[in-house]
Nucleic acid binder design. Structure first.
Length: 586
DNA sequence: GCCGTTTTCGGCCCGACTGTTTTCAGTCG
């Protein structure tokens, strides 16, 4: 049973308990457990079988731990079975309709016999919903709109799409309201989550009403969900929800903190504030005794006032970061400015857009000290992969371009297919001529976990394979990751001296955050790469760095923070001798 | 249901907006 499936069970329990009217703290405990399990890098199933103590996991106590064991051992949970018996089947889907909370859901079921979305629509149409006490015509209309919205709306949006929509939106807002002095993207986008539920904006302006009205009246807005003096919520025609809050500049710190979240991080910070006799809200810190409000111009001063280190947005997940910040244990996370080179880039020799010289010039213009040209191997026929003859020409061109451009090292590389049977697309005699070999899975992605694990580890054992590219092969929101024993692969990476890539393409962000953290813990080396197919994509270094930050990486964990000289020394080592430390301060 | 430099019992974040109400419950984030 996967962590996702176990998390789903507890999510359903919390929903049913809400309808039952259970204590809110119990409900939250199940929700928290669900989130926690979803983000665990190791399989809970295996932990149970190995007899590990699940109550070591924060938010998992005796009761939930026992329920997990029952789930893993029997495949079912009697507690959930009994709970489900108290409600009609499918009623949890009803509660998914925006605006329909647990109370209203139970009312339409008990008072109108509604148990499905279709039946809900019927009681809206025939007026019986509006006739219920404490509901009315407006509530009914809102529910009608919500049903329509819920039917058309997809789930969370991949970050790449959310970013482009947000860029257009902020441009429109600035145009429509020149009085805006700052427009800051917060929420899951600022945390750099791989999928985004809605876009959260903070607007710093003297005239809040004007800014909020501008948002509500944008031509791109399909529906206004709420519109007051402090915030406005809209749904764009693209289906994306946007929430905007306004603040004066002198209170920006607390508003940034509040609107960046995540929820659990905020709860933990407010808990910390309480322990100091203070109460934290989006305006500042309120003294509980006197009611005086202390305001903050920036987040740094707010965290400092709470007696803790600043927590970078990318790791505000409500996990261990708050206790780490209180203890002074937040490391200096890697920054894009630490990256000295790029080790995964394509040219028009395979499926890239730009000539090699253009790519190298662009990398130099970005301030990079080195770049590896890694066009596809022969097996990628569809991507114009390089035959051995062409690869030799490619290598010759690398030397020419390096000399012609000057001031930047250019390495001969390849992105080589790991074939379905674990064999490689080029022979060792060819590979040993190359400086840098990225091996990637591009085919037979549906293999079962055992076969796939062996396939990848076989590639790692090759002495000339430098790195594994985009290990999971996922495309966020489009293609599922491969099934494999990631833990075993990370251990093999550390054992063999094979580097694991953090692919900075926004469509991939592969490895994912929890895998980065786990690979790092297990001692695997990591590299942040662009996988650029055109010069503009060299900016993927920014995305890759932010993804690495989500995995709590410091510069010392990332191979391409080495400068050109150090990296050259690293390359000169035998693979079995390679580690980042071995070259970093040579 | 979880958790503990204040606690093994008694706490558990905080506020905006809406609709149907004359003071607030429900929902959301």
């Amino acid at each position: 049973m996967t962590n996702g499936e176990i998390a789903e069970v507890f999510e359903r329990i919390s929903g049913l308990l809400e309808m039952k009217g259970e204590k809110s703290f119990t409900i939250r405990a199940y929700q928290r457990a669900s989130r926690t399990i979803e983000r665990l890098p190791t399989e809970v199933d295996a932990m149970v079988r190995n007899d590990e103590d699940l109550t070591e996991i924060p938010g998992i106590g005796k009761a939930i731990s026992e329920k997990i064991s029952e789930l893993v051992n029997t495949g079912a949970l009697q507690y959930l079975v009994r709970l489900k018996d108290e409600f009609p089947p499918g009623i949890l889907d009803l509660m998914q309709i925006p605006g329909l909370g647990p109370k209203t859901t139970v009312r339409v079921w008990k008072e109108l016999g509604v148990t499905t979305v279709d039946q809900l629509e019927a009681v809206v149409d025939d007026g019986s919903l509006a006739a219920l006490p404490r509901l009315g015509k407006k509530s009914a209309e809102n529910i009608r709109k919500s049903i329509k919205f819920a039917r058309s709306k997809s789930d969370r949006v991949p970050i790449a799409r959310a970013m482009s929509v947000t860029r257009q939106l902020t441009n429109s807002l600035r145009e429509g309201c020149p009085g805006i002095s700052q427009l800051i993207v917060c929420g899951s986008l600022r945390r750099f989550e791989e999928t985004i539920g809605d876009v959260d904006l903070i607007c710093v302006t003297e005239d809040g009403d004007k800014a909020l009205n501008t948002l509500a009246e944008l031509p791109d807005v399909a529906d206004v969900l709420g519109h007051g003096g402090a915030k406005t919520s809209v749904v764009l025609k693209s289906g994306l929800q946007v929430d905007m809050r306004v603040t004066p500049a002198d209170q920006l710190g607390a508003m940034l903190q509040y609107f960046t979240g995540n929820l659990q991080h905020n709860v933990m910070l407010r808990d910390r504030a309480n322990s100091l006799g203070l109460s934290l809200n989006e305006y500042g810190l309120k003294d509980v005794e006197t009611g005086d409000l202390e305001t903050f111009v920036d987040e740094e001063s707010l965290y400092d006032r709470l007696g803790m280190q600043f927590v970078p947005p990318e790791i505000r997940m409500g996990e261990s970061e708050v206790s780490a910040a209180l203890a002074g244990n937040i490391p200096k996370l890697v920054d894009v400015s630490d990256l000295k080179g790029d080790l995964h880039a394509h040219t028009d020799w395979s499926d890239g857009r730009d000539p090699m010289e253009t790519m190298v010039e662009a990398a130099k213009a970005r301030g990079l000290e080195y770049i590896a040209m890694t066009d596809h191997s022969v097996g990628r026929g569809i991507a114009n992969g390089l035959s051995i003859e062409r690869l030799k020409g490619h290598m010759a061109l690398v030397r020419e371009v390096e000399a012609a451009v000057g001031g930047i090292r250019v390495f001969c590389g390849t992105e080589m297919d790991i074939r379905a049977d674990g064999s490689l697309d080029y022979a060792d005699e060819i590979l040993k001529e190359l400086d840098w070999v990225v091996a990637s899975v591009h085919s037979a992605m549906g293999q079962d976990a055992a076969v796939m694990t062996e396939r990848v580890i076989a590639a790692m054992k090759n002495p000339y394979v430098s790195a594994i590219g985009h290990l999971s092969t996922r495309l966020i929101g489009e293609r599922k990751p491969i099934e494999a024993d990631y833990e075993a692969i990370f251990r093999a990476a550390a054992d063999t001296g094979t580097v694991l890539e953090i692919n900075g393409s926004l469509e991939r962000l592969d490895l994912k955050d929890i895998h980065i953290a786990r690979a790092r813990e297990l001692g695997a080396m990591l590299v942040i790469s662009t996988d650029a197919h055109m010069t503009e994509s060299l900016r993927n270094l920014d995305h890759g760095a932010r993804q690495a930050r989500r995995g709590w990486c410091e510069a010392k964990h990332i191979l391409n923070t080495l400068d050109a000289k150090q990296f050259g020394a690293w390359l000169a080592m035998d693979k079995s001798e390679r580690s980042i430390k071995s070259a970093a301060h040579a």
